[in-house]
Amino acid sequence: MFSRKKAKSLLFIMLSTLLILSLAIGCTNPNDEKNEFNENPDNKEIAVENKDLILSTTTSTENSGLLDYILPVFQEETGIEVKVVAVGTGQALKMGEDGEADVLLVHAKASEEEFVANGHGVERYDVMYNDFILIGPKEDPLKVKEAAGKNITEAMKLIFENNGTFVSRGDDSGTHKKELSLWRELGIEPEGDNYISAGQGMGAVIQMTDEMKGYTLTDRATYLSMMEEIEAVIVVEGDERLFNQYGIIAVDPSKNDKINNEAANLLIEWILSEKGQKLIGEFGKDKYGQSLFIPNAK
């Protein structure tokens, strides 16, 4: 049996060990990494003073794993540490507007162009695209695949008119905006018991769709990463209207003096370069046998 004294000293030792350990990890690690890169003589000397860069992007971009794949290479080359803050598209643009981020990587072209036109960003560059797909139950009870073929709006109309379950992100994300624009094109105001506005991330929505045997619009990357765990299959793909263009924008540095415009420009230059573009194209090939993002910088 434990005596009280033993329990007390054990508790004390455990807590202090944890605190010290976590202090060590929590505090020193990021700096250590930076120092490592700074001291590495093989590194190209980069004349950027501030090596911290905040990239605001959408949850789906981060969840795809692309940034974890390409950004370490960028950091190794430049010593710049990109801190990725993943939020909804609306929030990502708002962060740029408020000067809380240095650079944005988002996929809502119209909003992005408006963002630059309003003077919040310097310039918008095309980076890459991926595509959306419509997924649904394997049995496809509404025969959407047969009837609509490649036509996404036709498919959505079929689901709506036959009271099929449609799960919407409902969170003002890029995917949600895309879905709404397609409904608008159809002249349909989506509502009713079979239109589920989830207010959640893509992965959660795919899972809901699978459980409810409904249909949803998703980006290909998230679907591929979950393909093994779910029963839902691709119902519609390849419609040009489903292509999802990503843009990168440096936030206007005049917003406040903390915006790291130098590093932002370096990142943009790198991501648009041959090397950056090649890396984007390679991502996902080994795991899914296909690229998740198609680089298309001009």
């Binding site: 949850t59 803050v85 991330g201 959660a204 899972q207 998230t222």
Partner: peptide, 23 residues
């Protein structure tokens, strides 16, 4: 901000993994 290697803690990781569908 749930930044990897910087501010990602257990609860934000759980929330993120849920939104990614990685239950």
């Amino acid at each position: 901000g749930n930044i990897r290697h910087h501010t990602r803690v257990m609860t934000t990781t759980i929330a993120m993994n849920h939104s990614m569908g990685q239950t």
